[in-house]
């Protein structure tokens, strides 16, 4: 009883803090200076039609690098913690249903294609590396569920992830040498605004981010799946 009233007190205090923080909130009429700068000069400077992509890849590119690093660390720690050597002997696999196998044979290539489409067009339409990577990982879930007999190679995922991570940092460093600063995309030609091959290095960098995020999320799923079959 005392514990519960204490917890209610904590929640009420948090509610008071939050209400105090948002009580003066008014729906804004104008962008503030920083966002106004991104909206006004973003299309000119980066050539990307999607302003969110311009912010994520170039203006706040260092944040994205840190974010990808955090994801890499979590994937590595999960792989390390759930590392399993022994497989349960004689465990009978439940056969995958015919409907799932047939449907996934049709759907997996389409889902992969959608994922690649999303991150290739990240500078023009809604979407980008994170979304495309998540779609690739969901294709991976379907693959693991339907093809329960085949083994997916870990090293392929690791090589994909290593190459794309290296490429991301390498392109960022090229920005220092050839253009204004780290992750500056203007060392490639900005091209025609609104075309697929435009916006300098943004499509390349975002595709690498997409591959990296997709490989990391797939790796987490794969390790989780392997624990299902392993012994305690």
């Amino acid at each position: 009883m005392i514990r519960n009233s204490f917890l209610v007190l904590i929640t009420a205090g948090m509610a008071w803090i939050l209400l105090d923080a948002v009580s003066g909130y008014q729906s804004r009429e104008y962008l503030n200076d920083l966002s106004g700068y991104y909206a006004t000069s973003g299309p000119e400077e980066t050539g990307a039609a999607n302003l969110v992509t311009a912010v994520v890849v170039t203006y706040r590119g260092l944040d994205t690098l840190g974010e990808v690093t955090i994801l890499f660390l979590t994937a590595t720690i999960i792989g390390f913690m759930l590392r399993t050597s022994k497989r349960r002997e004689g465990s009978v696999r439940r056969a995958t249903s015919e409907v799932l196998v047939t449907a996934s044979n049709v759907l997996i290539p389409v889902i992969f294609l959608i994922g690649v489409y999303i991150f290739l067009n990240g500078h023009l339409t809604p979407g980008g590396g994170f979304q495309g990577g998540a779609v690739l990982a969901s294709a991976m879930i379907l693959w693991i569920m339907s093809q329960s007999g085949t083994k997916v190679s870990h090293s392929l995922l690791e090589i994909t992830e290593a190459i794309s991570g290296f490429g991301f940092v390498f392109l960022g460093l090229l920005g220092i040498i050839l253009a204004g600063g780290f992750l500056d995309n203007t060392f490639l030609s900005l091209g025609t605004f609104g075309k697929l091959i435009s916006a300098g290095a943004i499509p390349v960098i975002y595709s690498l981010i997409g591959l990296k995020v997709g490989a990391e999320l797939s790796n987490i799923i794969l390790v989780m799946n392997e624990t299902q079959e392993a012994e305690q």
């Binding site: 909206a39 302003l51 969110v52 912010v55 994520v56 706040r60 994170f130």
Partner: peptide, 20 residues
Amino acid sequence: AASQVVDPLPQALVLTAIVI
């Protein structure tokens, strides 16, 4: 664009926050 679009900055931050 500055008078026609919503603020892109919180959206970019939330994008990374979801993946983390």
